[in-house]
Design a protein around this nucleic acid. Structure first.
Lengths: 270, 270
DNA sequence: AAATAATGTGAGCACCGCTCTCTATTTGCT
DNA sequence: AGCAAATAGAGAGCGGTGCTCACATTATTT
C-alpha cells in the first residue's frame, strides 16, 4: 500500500491493451530478422519516439509549473507506463532535466541563428537588432526554459560538454555580427581604459569568437552581452516592476544604446 | 507506519527531556501572572527565539544544498520537534522561504548601506566603488541567498510588500550616490538618444530614487544597474566560464566603465 | 479560578525519486 | 532456424517530502 500503481487502474488498462496487441503480433510473425511492432517501427525507432514523448510531457510540466514541477511519476502516468519504466530512458530526474536544457539551448540557438540570417548580411545594425529581438522574444515565449538556462543553476554543474557547445551557439552568432561589423567599418569610438587584459579575460576564447575585433573591445563586448541577458532576466524575473513599464520600447532603447556603446553607428532606415 | 517519527528515536528522546523539564517547572510555579519557562523567558520571547532557530537551521540548509534543499522535516528533527510542530511558526514551506528572502534582502541592504557610509560623503567615485564591491562581495559570501533573491523566482510572486521595500534598500543606496554626484558635478557626457520616456519608464519612481538627476539619464542608470547585477549573476551562475578568468579584476574594469558610462570622471587616487 | 490561546504530539494522506526482481519480447549471432 | 543476449516494462517496496487533523498540555487573559 502507499504506491499509486496498486490502486490506480488506468495505467494498468493501457498496459494490458499493449500486451494484447503484441500477442496478436506474435501470431502474425512471418518475416525473420527485424521484428516490427504494431506501428511497424523498429525497437530503436520506438525508443527515440518514447524519449520524445517523455520530453514532450516534461516540457509541458516545465512550462506549467516550472523546473521543480517536473515529476517523473506524473510523466509515466500520462504515458500509461509504470513509474519505474522511465528509468529505462533516463537514469535520473537530473538526466532528464539536462536533456531539456540541451534541447532548450539548441532551440534558442537556432532561433537566433535564423534571426541573424534573415537580415541582410552587410546590414550589421539590422542583424544586431534582429538577433537581440529574437533572443528576447524566445525568452518571453519560453520563460520556464529561459529560467532553466539562465536562472539559478539546479543541476550543480556537471555540464557535460554537450551543454557547453549548445550554449555557445548564441555566443557565436553575436560574435559573428560584431566581427563582421568590425571588419568593414572599424569603430571610431574610443575603447575602455586599455589596461592589459592578460590574465583576467580569456583572450584566446575571445579571439576565436571575435576575430577581426581588436582586443581592447573585448570588455565592451562582454558588457554588452551581460547587459542583454541582464535586461531579459530582470524583466522576466520581475525585477523591473516599478521601473520599466513598456519592456518592448525599453529594450529597443537598450539595444540602440549598446550598439553605440560598442562603437558602431546606426545605419539605414530600419 | 511509514512516518519517520515512529521509528526515529532521536527526536523523541529530545522531546521527552523537554517534557520532563516542563513538568519540573510545573511543580515549581510560584508567582502568578507572567509564567516563565526554564530559561526564564516569556512565551513571546520563546516564540521569537524559536523562529530564529528555525531560520538559522533553514539558512544552513540553504547554504549547503540550495533553496530546494530546505526541508521542514529536517529542521524539526534538528530542533528536536515533531514534524508538524513547525506549522505553528510558518504556514507553509513557501512562507519560510519568503521570510528568508526578506532577511536576505535586508542583510544585503545593510551591507551596501554600510559600505556607502564608510566612504567619504563627497567622494562619489569612492562611494560607487565601495557600494559595487560590497554588492559583489555579499553575493559571493552568500551565493545561495543571492540566487534566492536574483535567480529564478520560485515563490511565484506573492511578494508581500515587505519583500519589495526590503529589496529597495540597495536601489536607494545607489540612487543616492548618483543623485549626490549629479548635484555637484553634473556630467558632461551626452545622454543617450533622448526619446520621450513617457510611458515606457516609470518616471515618478525614477524621480523619487534619483532626485537631481535629469530624466535623460534614467535609462543609463537602469542599464548600469542591470550591468551590475548581470555581471554578478553571470559570474555566480557560471556563465563566464571560458570568458572571465579573474573576476575581481574584470569587475573593477566594469565598475570603472560604468562610472564613465554614467557620465562621471574618475577622481582622486583611490 | 475558569476560559482561552499557544505550543507540541502522533497518526496519517498523498505525493516524490529511486531500486530491485521478475517477465515478456525483440534483436543479433552462429 | 535456433539460441543467447539485450531491452522494455511490471510490480513491489524504501525512505523521504509537505501538509492536515484530532488531541493533550502548558501559558496567558479575563
Amino acid at each position: 500500500m502507499g504506491d499509486s500503481e496498486v490502486s490506480d487502474g488506468s495505467g494498468e488498462g493501457v498496459n494490458r491493451s499493449a500486451e494484447r496487441n503484441s500477442r496478436v503480433l506474435a501470431s502474425q510473425r512471418s518475416t525473420p530478422g527485424v521484428q516490427r511492432s504494431r506501428t511497424g517501427a523498429s525497437r530503436a525507432q520506438l525508443r527515440t519516439r518514447q524519449i520524445e514523448e517523455i520530453k514532450r510531457v516534461a516540457r509541458t510540466q516545465l512550462a506549467e509549473r516550472g523546473a521543480s514541477g517536473i515529476s517523473l511519476r506524473e510523466i509515466t502516468r500520462e504515458l500509461g507506463l509504470v513509474s519505474s519504466a522511465i528509468y529505462r530512458y533516463y537514469d535520473s530526474r537530473d538526466a532528464l532535466v539536462t536533456a531539456l536544457i540541451i534541447d532548450a539551448y539548441n532551440d534558442l540557438g537556432l532561433s537566433v541563428e535564423v534571426a541573424d540570417g534573415s537580415a541582410s548580411v552587410h546590414d550589421y545594425w539590422a542583424r544586431w537588432q534582429a538577433t537581440c529581438r529574437s533572443l528576447r522574444a524566445w525568452s518571453r515565449t519560453h520563460p520556464a526554459e529561459y529560467a532553466l538556462l539562465y536562472g539559478t543553476p539546479l543541476v550543480d554543474y556537471k555540464a557535460p560538454g554537450e551543454t557547453i557547445s549548445a550554449a555557445a551557439r548564441v555566443v557565436r552568432v553575436i560574435g559573428r555580427i560584431l566581427s563582421d561589423a568590425h571588419r568593414e567599418r572599424a569603430s571610431d569610438l574610443g575603447p575602455l581604459p586599455d589596461e592589459q587584459l592578460n590574465g583576467w579575460l580569456d583572450v584566446d576564447n575571445f579571439a576565436e569568437v571575435l576575430p577581426e575585433v581588436p582586443s581592447t573591445y573585448y570588455l565592451k563586448a562582454l558588457m554588452a552581452w551581460t547587459q542583454l541577458y541582464g535586461f531579459i532576466s530582470f524583466e522576466l524575473f520581475g525585477h523591473y516592476r516599478g521601473s520599466v513599464i513598456d519592456g518592448d520600447r525599453a529594450f529597443e532603447q537598450v539595444i540602440t544604446g549598446l550598439w553605440i556603446f560598442l562603437g558602431f553607428e546606426i545605419s539605414g532606415e530600419s
